[in-house]
């Protein structure tokens, strides 16, 4: 609950800011190497918004459903998700292991006049901070110890908190769609994924349950030729999971 040990407003060296500003232009370029993430963003934000409104009984027509809430985005990259969470009213902390990502994210947030607490640390390093909303998109398939990672996510979740994860499924379709086609054609930078590390929904559910959480929703992310990436019942390619603290009563 105490964030005073962490500086909220980073001091940016102008030369460094200019350097990362140029990089940010590519990171944030909707046609650049992160094009797939840009297209995915409205879809997964739609999922997050619905989950938030359901969990806290919010009105879906408002613009700041996260007002007064603390959000943590783990594996934030250049801030594609952290910035919308901040616009939705949350006080956002965002973590990424790569310092260069954090620098790019900071530079971009300054341009957008958003205050986001970006830190180049792992979630395990957070001591006594707790968050109402924890998001972790397309990260767990990259970590070496998924169980320990999920336990760390559970630990920073506030008692009435909401955890939302997304990750590719481990199916022949995801191998074809993500590794062979997307990486093969350069839609996603080559070497981004290791299929053997992909986690099936039922495996993730076990990890979450072991960490004291309860899965409340699993929704697929599918590709439709006519409409692009859409939320779907089909979890074969990629999926999103919502979990809450298991109070033990259910």
């Amino acid at each position: 609950m105490n964030a005073s040990t962490h500086p909220v407003t980073p001091t940016i060296d102008p030369a460094e800011a200019a350097h990362f500003g140029r990089m940010a232009a590519d990171w944030w370029d909707p046609k650049g190497s992160s094009a797939m993430l840009h297209r995915l963003n409205p879809v997964r934000l739609g999922y997050i918004r619905a989950a938030v409104d359901t969990h806290w009984h919010g009105n879906p027509d408002t613009f700041t459903p996260l007002e007064g809430r603390r959000a943590l985005d783990v594996g934030c990259g250049a801030g594609l998700l952290a910035e919308p969470l901040a616009r939705l009213g949350a006080t956002v902390t965002a973590l990424d292991a790569a310092p260069e990502n954090i620098a790019v994210a900071r530079a971009h947030a300054v341009g957008q006049r958003l205050t986001i607490d970006y830190r180049a640390v792992g979630v395990e390093t957070l001591a006594d901070e707790r968050f109402d909303l924890v998001t972790c998109m397309e990260v767990i398939e990259h970590v070496s110890d998924p169980a320990g990672f999920v336990a760390a996510l559970a630990r920073v979740l506030a008692p009435d908190g909401l955890l939302i994860l997304s990750t590719p499924n481990r199916t022949p379709l995801s191998r074809l769609g993500i590794i062979t086609v997307s990486e093969g054609l350069g839609r996603i930078p080559k070497g981004t994924h290791d299929w053997d590390r992909f986690i099936r929904p039922e495996e993730l559910a076990v990890l979450l349950t072991s960490a004291g959480l309860r899965v409340t929703d699993t929704t697929g992310l599918a590709f439709s030729p006519g409409r692009g990436l859409v939320l779907s019942e089909n979890v074969a390619l990629n999926y999103l999971v919502t979990a809450v603290a298991d109070s033990g009563s259910s």
Binding site: P30, K31, H38, R39, N41, P42, L45, G46, R49, P60, D61, T62, F63, E83, P84, L85, A86, R87, L88, Q112
Partner: peptide
Amino acid sequence: EAKRLGLDPGDAQG
């Protein structure tokens, strides 16, 4: 709809 998702009104997807 973009604003309800926290997206920038100038966002390329919108």
